[in-house]
């Protein structure tokens, strides 16, 4: 898999610092599971966190803290080796209750389907299924939209996005993603504000479908 569109430093740092909304964290964890470059970048930023912690002013523990912790220590956990790679990374499968077959799709019309994933408020994550050759209605963004391709590919004004590629769309981007011919395109998308549709009908349907 040759991934050309990666996570930004800002997203990686916020993830490393533990300060991303859950839906964005899911996209980051899924992309990193597919992308060794971003895995290394994340390790880099976690090392910065380690240096901040190590160089930080220490605050003395209370008397007896070591004894209290020692008393709690038992047999260490046995860690199972990672399970072999399946259709989607385990980070995402945990939210689906399985792989692609377990997804509970909801029709949005024109063959486009989505499944909203259960994440905490502040941002929303969903899986999108776009039939080959089909377009997602022209839309803009109030906040940030992350779109990670899991299968197939789409094109928009920016570039082509294939498996593992991540598009980071901000307020400036107005786009109409179109799935490539051939295979249906499946994406994991996360937004921290509702999308802005330009056509009247999708706008009307928006509250119904929570997109």
């Amino acid at each position: 898999m040759s991934i050309r569109h990666h996570l930004s430093d800002a997203l990686l740092i916020a993830y490393a610092a533990g300060n991303l909304p859950e839906a964005f964290g899911l996209v980051v964890a899924t992309h990193v599971s597919m992308c060794d470059d971003c895995r290394a970048q994340l390790a880099t930023f976690e090392a910065v966190g380690g240096a901040v912690l190590d160089g930080d002013a220490a605050v003395a523990m209370t008397d007896g803290a070591l004894d209290a912790v020692m008393a709690r220590l038992g047999a260490p956990e046995i860690i199972a080796p990672p399970s072999p790679q399946e259709d989607f990374p385990a980070a995402l499968r945990g939210y689906l209750g399985g792989g692609l077959a377990a997804v509970k799709w909801r029709n949005l019309g024109m063959g486009v389907r989505q499944a909203i994933l259960p994440t905490s408020k502040g941002a929303m994550a969903r899986l999108l299924y776009i039939p080959a050759g089909q377009a997602v209605p022209d839309h803009g963004h109030r906040g940030t939209e992350l779109t990670l391709v899991l299968q197939g590919a789409f094109r928009d004004a920016v570039d082509r996005f294939g498996p593992g590629d991540l598009e980071i769309a901000t307020e400036e981007l107005q786009h109409t993603p179109v799935a490539e011919a051939g295979e249906a395109c499946i994406c994991l998308a996360a937004t921290d504000a509702p999308l802005r549709f330009n056509a009247f009908i999708p706008r009307l349907l928006q509250p119904l479908f929570r997109i």
Binding site: G18, V32, S33, R39, A43, G49, G50, P82, P89, A91
Partner: peptide, 29 residues
Amino acid sequence: RASVATWVFTIARNRRIDLARKARRPEPD
């Protein structure tokens, strides 16, 4: 793969997230 300081940092960060919210904490495979 990581220094002890880095490893301790990731454990402390995860603990802080778990305290701050009831949400799940997605991790890379």
